[in-house]
């Protein structure tokens, strides 16, 4: 199954019953998958929206109505969704946003890229909020993390993002869909009409600065809990490593290929792969710097996650960077050469 289709199938299995989206390459297969399949489920709604702005507000509405919801797009479209994502964070509405990144800035191109890391992890929209960001690196993880994203979004009542790129979206890989967990989301957060009871409202506007400050702190405390409980990462051939590559998503796959080559040549290189980009596995990475002093950050960008690695390592280790922005994808061999040069220098 293609990566895009895996996300779609996993979402539907996880109980996603509302999807809205606007066509953009390289994620169209996902929109098309939802168009074909979500309506087969009872109560399933698909809307091809007039824009990405409309799509994000549609999923916000359906989320408020109590459905599990998802929208997807690629970089320029995700830029358009930012006001809506900020609004969902403010209103504490769960929902999944999939970004199958392409080359940027501007219209860029339709090749795989990782240029939206800052946008994804820094909030992207306005105001003091965070988005849970999951970065799958295989077909299996696309399925698993899509299901996880729904659970986390519900648990913390906040939007969650799947951040992948055109390569992940279009590659074909075998996958086993796990049994999703039953949904746990209280009716009290849903707007379904007041019935004979008290009416409810959901809002993002808090005119009184004291109320607004309290709301911001409430969100901040929630983000602290998420940071504490939901940080995910993978360590690959770290135990004896004297150099560690830090990479996520497609870049991490390329890094694994490079590491295999280097290991065959006797170079002890490992990989640290953040799976949650926010919350970033900061403490784990810092702990690693007690053993390893040489790090190389590799991204399909000019260096964005690099800043989080610097913050995590706080000067306890050397950090080199290799990047291929704008839709360029290096081969494992190219990366292996880059790593080998740095590795030799350090020796």
């Amino acid at each position: 199954m293609s990566g895009n289709n895996i996300i779609g199938e996993a979402a539907i299995r996880a109980g996603c019953r509302f999807y809205a989206g606007y066509p953009i390459t390289p994620q169209n297969e996902l929109t098309e998958y939802m168009a074909e399949h979500i309506r087969n489920e009872e109560g399933g709604v698909f809307i091809q929206s007039e824009s990405e702005i409309a799509a994000i507000n549609m999923i916000a509405g359906a989320s408020a109505a109590g459905l599990r919801v998802m929208t997807s797009s690629s970089s320029p479209g995700i830029s358009l969704k930012q006001e809506g994502i900020s609004s969902m964070a403010a209103c504490e509405l769960p929902g999944i946003i999939v970004n199958i990144m392409r080359g940027g800035p501007g219209l860029g191109n339709i090749r795989p890229s990782q240029g939206d890391y800052f946008q994804a992890t820094r909030g992207g929209g306005h105001g003091d909020y965070r988005t849970i960001v999951l970065a799958p690196a295989s077909g299996q993880e696309l399925a698993d993390l899509t299901m996880t994203a729904f659970d986390l979004a519900d648990k913390y009542r906040t939007p969650a993002m799947i951040l992948a790129d055109g390569m992940m979206g279009q590659m074909m890989e075998p996958v086993i869909f796990k049994k999703p967990k039953p949904r746990q989301y209280s009716e009290k957060f849903m707007l379904r009409g007041a019935g004979t009871g008290k009416s409810k409202f959901i809002r993002g506007l808090l005119l009184d600065p004291i109320d607004s400050e309290a709301h911001n702190w409430k969100l901040a405390r929630k983000y602290e809990v998420i940071t504490k409980n939901e940080t995910r990462f993978e360590e690959h051939r770290i135990d004896d490593a004297d150099m560690v590559i830090v990479a996520y998503g497609t870049a991490a796959r390329i890094a694994k290929g490079a590491i295999k080559r280097l290991r065959d040549q006797g170079m002890k290189v490992g990989l640290f792969r953040p799976i949650t980009l926010w919350p970033f596995p900061e403490l784990k990475l810092r702990a690693l710097s007690a053993k390893v002093k040489n790090f190389l950050v590799f991204e399909m960008s000019t260096g964005q996650m690099l800043e989080d690695v610097r913050l995590a390592l706080q000067g306890y280790a050397d950090i080199e960077f290799h990047g291929r922005p704008g839709g360029a994808v290096p081969t494992p061999a190219e990366l292996a050469n880059v790593i080998a040069k740095i590795y030799d220098k350090k020796d």
Binding site: A194, S199, K200
Partner: peptide, 8 residues
């Protein structure tokens, strides 16, 4: 006094 959600 009905359920409401404020839109952007």
């Amino acid at each position: 006094d009905v359920d409401m959600i404020e839109a952007p």
